[in-house]
Design a protein around this nucleic acid. Structure first.
Lengths: 111, 111
DNA sequence: ATATATACATAATTTTCTTATGCATGCAAA
DNA sequence: TTTGCATGCATAAGAAAATTATGTATATAT
């Protein structure tokens, strides 16, 4: 699988996108979802994930709700209104960046 | 143009790819080529470029040849054999990563 | 008892940028 | 004539965003 590393900068967008599709998710769930969706290609480490979630919360893009399930702590995150707006923005930026990369690394496929 | 920033990790691959198509290039030429190919979307800063070139050279992926043109210094870089191999490798990693991203951010387009 | 899965968290370190600055040449515009 | 812009290199300081290594705790399976 080559390299399970993230390209720095894309994690935040990935988190926001998942939350835009799932109403609310907790950290561990996000790591599992990403692993499943990418067939193991991408593994979000806790050391990257949790600080990211905290930052998104601090920026007002996510709201948190703590829950106790099966005697275990879970922190559910969901998009705020601002977070929803920012998701659209960050997604289009990432898509634009991918298109730009394509024009460099695979010019023939860039229409 | 949203955000002219690089996603960290892709610069090296971009440099190698350009060199795989152009035999030899000098730093400033690379910045101009990238700007042209991406229609101004991506601007490689010198602060990112030169340290990258030096690192690639130190790793044995590039050879340097100094030339004086119009009384100005130019340092031409070209791929070594090892560099050519590594280019193939890094390109496929980046393409794989892009495909993985697509499967997360735009599932419908991933066939 | 030990390992694995679930669930959170943070500290130290590394990588890789941005921003700012510096040096030098050549040319065009004011 | 000096001011700015393009050409061409370089490095230092700082920021951002990861990796790696820990730590805590519960539950289940071996």
């Amino acid at each position: 699988m080559a390299n399970s590393n993230l390209y720095k900068g894309s994690l935040t967008t990935i988190i926001l996108k998942l939350l835009s599709e799932h109403d609310k998710m907790y950290g561990y769930e996000i790591t599992q979802k990403v692993k499943a969706l990418t067939k193991g290609e991408l593994k979000i480490t806790e050391g990257a994930l949790y600080p990211s979630l905290h930052k998104l919360e601090a920026e007002g893009l996510l709201d948190v709700e703590v829950a106790k399930v099966d005697n275990r702590l879970r922190k559910y995150y969901k998009l705020t209104e601002k977070g929803t707006t920012e998701t659209v923005h960050k997604l289009s930026e990432l898509e634009q960046y991918i298109a730009t990369l394509q024009s460099l690394i695979n010019p023939k496929l860039s229409y």
